[in-house]
């Protein structure tokens, strides 16, 4: 599973908010470049960051998924885009330069966004992210929903395992595959989990209200999230980048 890896690197030390802004800016701007070359450069840049951050490309999981997904996306695009310089024309199959360019274009864009997201996750402590969001203006009552949601992730992972064992113990299995079985699997997994969830909701509400959650509009924090010079620099660079972008895109209508 992709999750936070504790290390002392530059990327780890950057304030989570700055990092999130950069990630958003990066992903967002990829949708404005219509050149496949830029997308490849972006993907290479992300992979390069893996190397210098000391995380290493090998930490990317689910390689099988990405290979299958990318190949399929690639093939579909090649087969269905029929305009442009023709490279191969054999019965109904026609491979064109445009097709290949567009195929590379959409695959690399997808991978660049996902891999940069993974890098963010592996270098950012979720707890710190949530607390930073709240200290940067997100109302804390909403911010804590993220903390609570993250808090229960391991609990529910464990419980999902339990439920699936209990299903097996009573003879429910996917040996016979059919749409009906799948419906049953979903139903018999969701309902028991929701049932135990209801108890958590009641207990947690009492526990949080019992400790004055929501009494004032603001609250204090024991750990202050610091913005260093480099964070401010990163934030302003992202901002300039985005403004420049908008100007280019909408002000002058050409790229």
């Amino acid at each position: 599973m992709i999750k936070y890896i504790e290390k002392e690197t530059f990327l780890h030390r950057v304030n989570p908010i700055s990092k999130l802004v950069v990630l958003f800016t990066f992903a967002y701007s990829l949708f404005f470049f219509n050149s496949w070359l830029v997308q490849i450069l972006a993907l290479l840049l992300v992979l390069f960051l893996y190397t210098i951050s000391g995380i290493g490309v090998s930490k990317i999981e689910g390689k099988k998924f990405f290979i299958v997904f990318s190949l399929t996306l690639f093939i579909i695009n090649i087969l269905f885009i029929r305009e442009g310089q023709i490279l191969l024309n054999y019965s109904i199959v026609r491979i064109t330069m445009d097709g290949i360019e567009f195929a590379i274009f959409s695959v690399t864009r997808f991978l660049a966004i996902v891999f940069s997201s993974f890098l963010f996750v592996m270098t950012t402590e979720p707890n710190k992210l949530a607390y930073s969001l709240m200290q940067s203006g997100l109302p804390y009552r909403y911010g804590f929903t993220l903390v609570v949601a993250l808090r229960f992730v391991p609990t529910f992972q464990f419980e999902t395992g339990n439920v699936r064992n209990a299903q097996a113990a009573r003879g429910l299995s996917v040996d016979k595959m059919s749409v009906k079985t799948l419906y049953k699997m979903a139903r018999y997994t969701f309902i028991p989990l929701i049932r135990s969830t209801m108890q958590y909701i009641d207990t947690l509400t009492v526990s949080m209200e019992g400790r004055c959650f929501g009494i004032y509009e603001k609250r204090t924090y024991i750990e202050e999230v610091n913005y260093e010079k480099k964070d401010l620099a990163i934030l302003s660079m992202s901002l300039i980048y985005i403004i420049g972008f908008f100007y280019q895109r909408f002000g002058q209508n050409f790229l």
Binding site: R141, A149, T160, I201, L204, T205, M208
Partner: peptide, 25 residues
């Protein structure tokens, strides 16, 4: 804060827990 919140604490907890379970599943 005297005003009644639009989402009560219980609503927020409910949404958080449902999101968590949905994310895991």
């Amino acid at each position: 804060s005297n005003k009644k919140y639009y989402f009560s604490t219980k609503d927020l907890v409910t949404m958080a827990i449902i999101s968590s379970l949905g994310g895991v599943l």
